[in-house]
Design a protein around this nucleic acid. Structure first.
Lengths: 184, 184
DNA sequence: GTCTATAGGTGGATAGAC
DNA sequence: GTCTATCCACCTATAGAC
């Protein structure tokens, strides 16, 4: 059971750094310290592994967002951005973003879980932005749905390109730009 | 020479749809109608192929942006967004975005070209946004540099997640959201 | 420039012993 | 649960004939 978690966390980091098609069972085995064949005892196929990973990832996100207190919308959005920012230190992207990039090479059975991952964020953001607009904390430049989609897109794109340039500055500038544009 | 172009365009589409690690010389060969080995006559290695591809891609973008007349900043930004949007029809992402996602698996020799690809857009956008702010067409919610980074990030992220969900709506909402937020 | 043939390596996955 | 051993498909790349 502990081995299972170890496998999951190593695999997640590998996907975030290299993408689903950029690592192999051999990579995981080397890091975890067991043989390739033993991995198949825990996760029969690579698709099976990614499925469990995606489920866990979405659940963790959902729990985190649900646990945030109802504060000023601008503060909540900064905490949301901080969630993305925490990946910068060890050159990770969001796992959802990596899977989105490679979606056309994935087993179709993974698509629903990926869509749900986006939905969770859209729903939460829409709520925060609606309340924010109502309270006059967030500018009414667009609908909460449009602002939600924009926020997800910006943070995902910013994380990917910060890694490409090797400079966190690009991420920080993008976030500063998008959050400033939402402030009333 | 015609074969070379054919190879380049097929390879570009494959990268935009599946990523660098999601296609092989066999895929190109099948579509172009020659054998795998013949591809190596035109591009010795896969890295070599991507290098030429990236150079061509950046050059085309640079030419397009340089050819745009000096119009209202908001119109120019919509044309820039349209450039991204044109990929939606056949489920492509931006090639730069796909390479950014897979950057940690790429030959390091490709990194400078990828960074230059981003720089071209940052420079052009900064110019447009500076003039726009000066003319009162663009809101001064953030610096032109921050707004540029935000725009690139948003469009890249939006394109990736539109493919993930299989719905163009997400892209269109993101774009609407970000462009609205910039309008003075 | 394109072909056949092949090298040399790695991919995910399975069988069966312990 | 983990191991060794192995399968077969696929990968990038090369050699050499035409």
């Amino acid at each position: 059971m502990d081995t299972k978690d170890h496998i999951l966390s190593v695999a997640q980091r590998l996907i975030q750094q290299r993408g689903v098609n950029g690592f192999s069972y051999a990579d995981i085995a080397a890091e975890v310290g067991i043989r390739k064949a033993s991995l198949h005892h825990h996760f029969a196929t690579k698709t099976d592994l990614v499925q469990h990973l995606l489920e866990r990832y979405r659940q963790q996100l959902e729990d985190y967002l649900a646990g945030l207190p109802d504060a000023d919308s601008r503060v909540l959005l900064e905490q949301y951005a901080g969630l993305y920012q925490s990946n910068l230190c060890d050159q990770r992207a969001c796992m959802g973003g990596m899977l989105a990039a490679e979606v056309m090479t994935l087993d179709p059975s993974l698509r629903p879980a990926l869509e749900r991952f986006v939905s969770v964020q859209e729903r939460w953001l829409c709520g925060v932005l609606e309340r924010g607009q109502a309270r006059g904390e967030i500018v009414r430049s667009a609908t909460p749905a449009q602002q939600s989609a924009m926020l997800i897109s910006t943070l995902q794109g910013a994380l990917l390109f910060a890694r490409a340039g090797g400079n966190d500055a690009f991420f920080l500038e993008s976030v500063k730009g998008v959050l400033s544009s939402l402030h009333a």
